[in-house]
């Protein structure tokens, strides 16, 4: 119910370039964003979170369940899904954490069973080099293009007028003025 209403409000409140932006508009946009985030809250609250006595372990559990992907779902972390397999995986994370395993060992444990699919942060391997390398490659490419443009402009600027050309230019300008 509240969702379409907030959308229309967002639309009305959106600053339009043809009207002057005023504070109330900005405030109502902020209000709508707040409303939307409040709507998103209850969805994750339904999933039971395991409580550890040790805050460090609690944080590790949080990070692990946020970064392991549910194999049954298209795009949900196991900490964010209530599918039975996500529940089993969370339970297994608890067991392994209490067993004193490292984060890496727990991730390996899941990958051995469910494949690389479960890692939201894919590891660097023969299959993933393009994934990791492409952004860096694009940055290098961009730097190259910028370098080429800068060089071309510099070269153009370097071709200044000779003394004779400047005199002729001045003569032309002066003639224009006196006419």
């Amino acid at each position: 119910m509240a969702f379409p209403m907030s959308l229309s409000r967002l639309w009305n409140a959106w600053p339009r370039p043809w009207s002057s932006p005023c504070l109330s508009q900005v405030l109502s946009v902020l209000f709508c964003l707040l409303l939307l985030s409040a709507l998103a809250g209850p969805a994750s609250a339904a999933i039971e979170v395991h409580r550890f006595d040790n805050p460090v372990t609690q944080q590790r559990y949080q990070d692990l369940t946020d970064n392991l992907r549910c194999p049954k779902c298209q795009n949900q972390a196991i900490g964010d899904s209530n599918s039975p397999i996500a529940e089993d995986m969370r339970e297994q994370v608890v067991v392994l954490l209490e067993d004193g395993r490292s984060d890496r060992e727990i991730q390996d444990y899941m990958v051995r069973r469910f494949g690389d699919y479960v890692l939201y942060n894919p590891r660097l391997s023969g299959r993933t080099w393009l994934l990791w390398g492409l952004p860096a490659g694009l940055v290098v490419l961009g730097a190259l293009v910028i370098g080429l443009i800068v060089r071309a402009r510099r070269r153009a600027a370097g071709q200044a007028l000779s003394v004779a050309e400047r005199e002729r230019l001045n003569a032309l300008i002066n003639r224009e003025r006196t006419e």
Binding site: P71, K72, I85, D88, Q92, R113, F114, G115
Partner: peptide
């Protein structure tokens, strides 16, 4: 099932 990576 878990050790076999069964998810459904």
């Amino acid at each position: 099932g878990f050790d076999l990576g069964v998810y459904g």
